[in-house]
C-alpha cells in the first residue's frame, strides 16, 4: 500500500467519523445549553460550569450534581451521586474493549474518556456493519461532540439567564424531571425494568418524606438494584447486547 493511499484512507475514515457524529452533537446541544443555564442558576460560576462539562462530560450526572449543589449537601455525596449516575458506563468500555484489540492501552485510556452514550451507540453500529473502529474514525466522531458540549455549556451559562427570564413559566424547574423520565424510558427493554422502576419510585418517595433529600436517591436506587439482583435470573442478555439496546433506544 502506497503512502498516498494510506493517507487518503485516513482522511476517508476521519470524514466518515465526523459524519456519524453530526446527529449526536446536534441532539445533545440543547442539553448542554440547559446545563449551563441551570448551573449558573444553582450558584456555579460560568468557568465552573464549563469546567464541569469538560471534566465530567456526562449530561445526566452533571444535572444531578448541580441539583445537589443548590441544596448545600455534603461534597462527598455530590461526587458519589455523579459516580452513581454514571455507573452505567462500565458496560460500554467492557463491550467496546472487545472490538479494539488493535488499540494500545494508552489509546484505550484516552479514547474511553469520551465514551458517552451516543458515542458508544455509533461505535457499536460500526462494528455491526462489519467495519473496524479505527482511532481516526473514533476521533472524528467523538471529538466534535465533546467540543460542542463544552461550547454549548458556555453559551448556556453566559447567556441562559438573559434568554430565559421566567424559570417557572418556561418550566425550567421541572425540565430535568422530564429529561430523567425520558432516560428511564430508554432502559425499558432491560430485564426487570418495571419492578425496578416501581420499587425505586416507591422507596425513594418514602425516603424523601421520612429521611429527606438527598438520601432518597441512594436509598431508592439501592432498593431497585437489590430487587433486580434478588429476582430469579432470567435468560440474561449477553452483556454487549443489553448495552447496545440501551444506547440505541
Amino acid at each position: 500500500m502506497s503512502a498516498t493511499s494510506v493517507s487518503s484512507d485516513r482522511v476517508d475514515h476521519l470524514w466518515k467519523g465526523v459524519r456519524a457524529g453530526v446527529p449526536i452533537f446536534v441532539a445533545s446541544a440543547p442539553f448542554a445549553v440547559l446545563f449551563g443555564a441551570m448551573a449558573v442558576e444553582n450558584g456555579l460560576t460560568v468557568a465552573q460550569a464549563v469546567l464541569m462539562s469538560a471534566a465530567v462530560y456526562g449530561g445526566a450526572s452533571q444535572m444531578v450534581g448541580i441539583e445537589l449543589f443548590g441544596q448545600h449537601v455534603a461534597p462527598w455525596l455530590i461526587v458519589f451521586s455523579i459516580f452513581a449516575v454514571n455507573f452505567r458506563h462500565v458496560l460500554y468500555s467492557a463491550a467496546i474493549g472487545q472490538h479494539v484489540p488493535h488499540w494500545s492501552p494508552l489509546r484505550k485510556a484516552v479514547a474511553f474518556f469520551f465514551l458517552v452514550d451516543p458515542v458508544f451507540a455509533e461505535s457499536e453500529r460500526r462494528v455491526e456493519n462489519g467495519k473496524r473502529i479505527t482511532i481516526i474514525w473514533y476521533a472524528g466522531m467523538a471529538l466534535p461532540m465533546y467540543c460542542s458540549w463544552i461550547l454549548m455549556t458556555w453559551i448556556g451559562a453566559e447567556f441562559g439567564s438573559q434568554v430565559m427570564p421566567d424559570a417557572h413559566a418556561i418550566g425550567l424547574d421541572f425540565l430535568l424531571s422530564i429529561y430523567f423520565l425520558g432516560l428511564v424510558m430508554g432502559f425499558r427493554k432491560r430485564p426487570r425494568w418495571l419492578p425496578v422502576v416501581l420499587v425505586s419510585a416507591v422507596v425513594s418517595v418514602i425516603a424523601y418524606r421520612t429521611i429527606g433529600s438527598p438520601w432518597h436517591v441512594s436509598i431508592g436506587a439501592l432498593a431497585g438494584i437489590l430487587l433486580a439482583a434478588a429476582l430469579p435470573p432470567r435468560a440474561a442478555l449477553p452483556l454487549e447486547a443489553a448495552a447496545v439496546e440501551e444506547a440505541t433506544s
Binding site: 458496560l91 428511564v184 422502576v197 425505586s200 419510585a201 436517591v217 431508592g220 431497585g224
Partner: peptide, 22 residues
C-alpha cells in the same frame, strides 16, 4: 448473573429516584 442483573438495573433505579419525589 445476580451481579449483572444488579448492574443492569442501576441507571433505571437511580434516575427513577430523581423523578419520583419531584
Amino acid at each position: 448473573p445476580r451481579v449483572q442483573a444488579g448492574l443492569e438495573a442501576v441507571p433505571a433505579a437511580v434516575l427513577t429516584t430523581l423523578v419520583a419525589p419531584a
